[in-house]
Amino acid sequence: MQTRAMTFSFLLFITRKPTISPEEFKTYWDTKHVELLKSIAGDNFPLTHTRHYIARPAETNGSWPAAILIGSQDDFTYDGIAELVFPDESAFQTFFGIVSAPEAAAKIAADEETFIVREKMKAVVMGETSVTSRN
């Protein structure tokens, strides 16, 4: 029987500034913002920082509607979902302390102002995960 150590993870729901395209949002988050976080957190950066982007394939009247299967546009006010995974809750607390320190928090906030709507950011701690495979 294989056992796995419990990790600590949380999800971030991020809304891009309406003045930038979904592609500009993705490029900035992937290449600039995550690099800033890595430079601030150093060895305390999460084990993984996975970003998922809502598909918004075509501009329509100055906006990029989500490619919805079920629901409405109003249900998808965010553009990206990030999952940050840490070895344990203590590692998360260390990371959180680093990024919350006044100087680091100011750098992060200034960077976020360039590509997201900070007031719409949401975060939630993940519980257990169940995975079902085809086989």
Rank of each mutant, 00 (worst) to 15 (best):
M1Q: 11
M1R: 13
M6T: 11
F8K: 01
F10N: 01
L11F: 15
I14Q: 03
T15I: 01
K17C: 06
K17M: 04
P18T: 01
T19F: 06
I20E: 04
E23L: 12
E23W: 13
E23Q: 15
E24I: 10
F25H: 03
K26M: 03
T27L: 05
W29N: 08
K32Q: 04
K32V: 13
V34T: 14
L36A: 04
L37H: 07
L37G: 12
K38M: 10
S39C: 02
I40D: 14
I40A: 12
I40Y: 12
G42M: 10
D43L: 10
N44L: 05
R51N: 05
Y53C: 10
R56Y: 09
A58I: 13
A58Y: 14
A58P: 02
T60W: 07
N61R: 03
G62N: 00
W64A: 01
W64K: 04
A66Y: 10
A67E: 09
I70V: 12
I70M: 08
I70S: 10
I70W: 14
G71V: 04
G71F: 11
F76N: 00
F76L: 02
G80M: 05
I81D: 09
I81G: 08
L84G: 00
V85Y: 06
F86K: 00
P87L: 04
D88A: 08
D88M: 08
D88L: 04
F92D: 02
T94H: 09
F96I: 04
P102I: 04
P102C: 05
E103W: 01
A105D: 11
D111T: 01
E112D: 10
F115Q: 01
I116R: 00
E119P: 12
K120Q: 09
M121S: 13
A123Q: 15
A123W: 15
V124P: 07
V124I: 15
V131L: 14
T132L: 11
T132K: 08
T132S: 06
T132C: 10
S133K: 11
R134H: 08
N135R: 13
